[in-house]
Amino acid sequence: MFKRRKQKEKKHHTGEIPTGSFSDIAFLLIIYFLVATTLVKVQSVTADLPTGEKQADAQVDKTPVVNLRGTEIFFSDKKVSVENFNARLAALKLAEQPPENRVIMLESTKDTPYEVYFQALAAISSNHGVVAIVEEEE
């Protein structure tokens, strides 16, 4: 009788970790991550600004110049709205031009907010233009 009891106790202490439910737990975790993950795709404008040596004597007379003065946009020294600016850039048909003729000079005053700068950048890039930032002379 005593021996039997001992045998029964031994059966309970096998030391094995129950792993039967591991796969269920793992798959539940996968489902949780899949449901909780949000794939954020941001919207953006692509701009490849040319780099290299600073050109002091750029072909200013031939290259279209965009001036940003505060919140106003000037294209070839004429004030334009964002829509008008887009239309004028589209009229240049930059996509059909060779790369060297796609350059648009972008000049801005110190108080120009990024909002306006971004709109100009977006308009130029969407019309296949290449933005060249004009630096102020010190």
Binding site: S44, V45, T46, A47, D48, L49, T112, Y114, I133
Partner: peptide, 21 residues
């Protein structure tokens, strides 16, 4: 204002990056 963001834009361009604004 321009003085805050333009140096960063130029820095990305100088380093050879294509800007995704």
């Amino acid at each position: 204002p321009r003085e805050t963001f333009e140096p960063v834009l130029k820095a990305i361009a100088e380093a050879g990056g294509i800007i995704e604004a």
